[in-house]
Structure formats: structure tokens, C-alpha cells
């Protein structure tokens, strides 16, 4: 491969890897929104928190693999805690109350993280087996990013199985398309909400662990990556998983090629893309009218 082509290919894979991470965050956000009507602004902070959990587990046990498995689970449990204690009590006060509440939660999580771990960037080492480069037909490519893509695909398959093969998944899909219907079916909604919130946070947790070795763990992570995930959900259409997937990948590519050609202004591309999509389709790419 000549250098230019290999550069394009490398940036493409970079973009897909970042897109997959975005999708992990955005999918949780969009499912929670579709099901419960809540846009969880604390989602970005929860994503970041998982990175810290993983850092802590590695610091205590020395095992990246343990962190990779346990940190997202811990994050999911934390999400369930948030849902039970906070979300449930303000269901009645409308979307303004929910947005403000989750904004408050996000600020508290961020504040607490700074109390416990400080503000500096915490580096994270990955095991040797996924370190270094691999040769892809003449192109030297970091293994870890391929590992991210692989892991995200595994999670994606798991999600599809969960959504299409389990009772919970069927309820969730039904609820996303028609919230009132599920209420009428006599399903124990509070438990379903709790599980959905937990799974959503678990997904964000996986993303948090996946991105940590690349970007390191620091409080700004929530803003930097979380903001992109929010833009994905708005652009893809609230509640649409397909929309979240397509837009995540587009944003991943926009961001990686953008950095190549416009270095400084890559984040601007996403907002412009969002503005164009919303100007044509106010409810997002795959959004349905509310």
C-alpha cells in the first residue's frame, strides 16, 4: 500500500473505532430516552466514572481484564442506584425537571470524581497481548483499536440478542415504539425501567473503559466524548438505535478525517452536520414525530 492510501485506511479504522465507542454511549442514552422519555444528561459523567472505576480496579488488582469486566458492571449498578433514588421520585415533574436533575447529578459526579481522584490525567496500561502494532497488508495498525472494534461488535451482537430474543428486549422494543401500550400490558414497569437504566449505564461503562487507555482518564473526558454522544442522539433521532448507529459511525469518520485535514476544527464538523440534518428533518435522521 502506498503511504497516502494507508493513511486513509488507518484514519478510516480510527474513525470506526471511535464511532463504535460513541455508539456504545449513545445506544444507552437513546434506549433510555425511547423507553422512559428521559434524556439522561448524567450519562456522560457515568461514562467517565467507569474509566475511573477501571483505573481503581487496576490500581488495586493489577489486572486490566478484571477492570474491563467489573468497571462497567459497577457502573451499571451505580446507574440502577441513580434511577431508584433520584429519577423515580421526579417522574411527574416533566422533562424540564428531569433535564435539570440529571444536570445536577452530572455536576455532583464530576465534583466527587475530582475529590477522590483529583484533576490530573491518569494513564492506563493495557496488557501486552493487545499492545503494539499489527501488520494489515502493509499497514501498521495499533492492535488496541482493533480490539475496541472487536469488543464493540461483540457487545452489539449481545445487544441485538438481548433486544430480539429476550422478554425484556421485547418489552423495551414495544415501549420505544409505543410507551402507552406497555403501560396497558400489565408489565412491572418500575423493574423494567430500572433494568433498562442499568443496561444503558453498563454500555456507557464499557465505552468508558475502552476509551481510557487511548485518551487517559481525566474529568474533561465527560465533556469531550460525552458531548459527541449527545449530538449523536439528537442527530440520529431520539429513541432510534439505528439512527444512533449510523450517526455514530459518520461522526467517528468525520472526526478522524476531520483531524487529518482541518485539525483544529474537527469538532465543528459534527455540529454543522447536526445543523444540516435538523434543518431538513427536525426530529433527527431516523426520528419519528413526537
Amino acid at each position: 500500500m502506498d503511504p497516502t492510501t494507508s493513511m486513509y485506511v488507518a484514519q478510516g479504522i480510527h474513525g470506526i473505532a471511535y464511532g463504535m465507542v460513541l455508539f456504545l454511549i449513545a445506544s444507552g442514552l437513546t434506549i433510555i430516552f425511547g423507553m422512559m422519555g428521559i434524556l439522561n444528561l448524567a450519562h456522560a459523567a457515568i461514562f467517565m466514572l467507569s474509566g475511573y472505576f477501571c483505573y481503581q480496579i487496576i490500581a488495586m488488582t493489577g489486572s486490566f481484564w478484571l477492570g474491563l469486566v467489573l468497571a462497567p458492571i459497577g457502573t451499571g449498578i451505580f446507574g440502577i442506584f441513580l434511577e431508584r433514588v433520584f429519577m423515580r421520585s421526579i417522574r411527574a415533574s416533566g422533562h424540564l425537571g428531569e433535564l435539570i436533575l440529571t444536570l445536577g447529578l452530572s455536576m455532583v459526579i464530576l465534583g466527587l470524581v475530582k475529590v477522590f481522584w483529583g484533576t490530573q490525567s491518569l494513564p492506563m496500561q493495557v496488557p501486552e497481548i493487545i499492545q503494539g502494532m499489527v501488520n494489515l497488508g502493509g499497514l501498521e495498525y495499533p492492535i488496541y483499536r482493533l480490539f475496541i472494534i472487536g469488543m464493540s461488535l461483540v457487545v452489539l451482537v449481545l445487544m441485538v440478542l438481548l433486544l430480539y430474543k429476550t422478554r425484556l428486549g421485547k418489552i423495551v422494543r414495544a415501549a420505544v415504539s409505543d410507551r402507552d401500550m406497555v403501560n396497558a400490558l400489565g408489565i412491572n414497569i418500575p423493574v423494567v425501567f430500572m433494568l433498562v437504566f442499568g443496561v444503558g449505564c453498563w454500555l456507557a461503562g464499557i465505552a468508558g473503559v475502552a476509551i481510557a487507555p487511548i485518551l487517559t482518564v481525566f474529568p474533561g473526558l465527560a465533556d469531550q466524548v460525552g458531548m459527541d454522544a449527545f449530538i449523536v442522539v439528537v442527530t440520529g433521532g431520539f429513541g432510534s438505535l439505528a439512527g444512533a448507529f449510523v450517526v455514530s459511525i459518520i461522526f467517528g469518520l468525520l472526526s478522524s478525517y476531520g483531524i487529518q485535514f482541518l485539525s483544529q476544527l474537527a469538532p465543528v464538523l459534527m455540529v454543522i452536520f447536526m445543523a444540516i440534518v435538523l434543518a431538513i428533518r427536525p426530529n433527527g435522521l431516523f426520528g419519528v414525530k413526537e
Binding site: F230, I231, V234, M270, V271, M274
Partner: peptide, 10 residues
């Protein structure tokens, strides 16, 4: 609603 808030965030 929510989309208005998020567009402004962006």
C-alpha cells in the same frame, strides 16, 4: 423540548 435544549448544548 429536549431537542431544543440539546441543540443549544451543541
Amino acid at each position: 423540548g429536549t431537542a431544543f435544549a440539546m441543540i443549544h448544548l451543541a
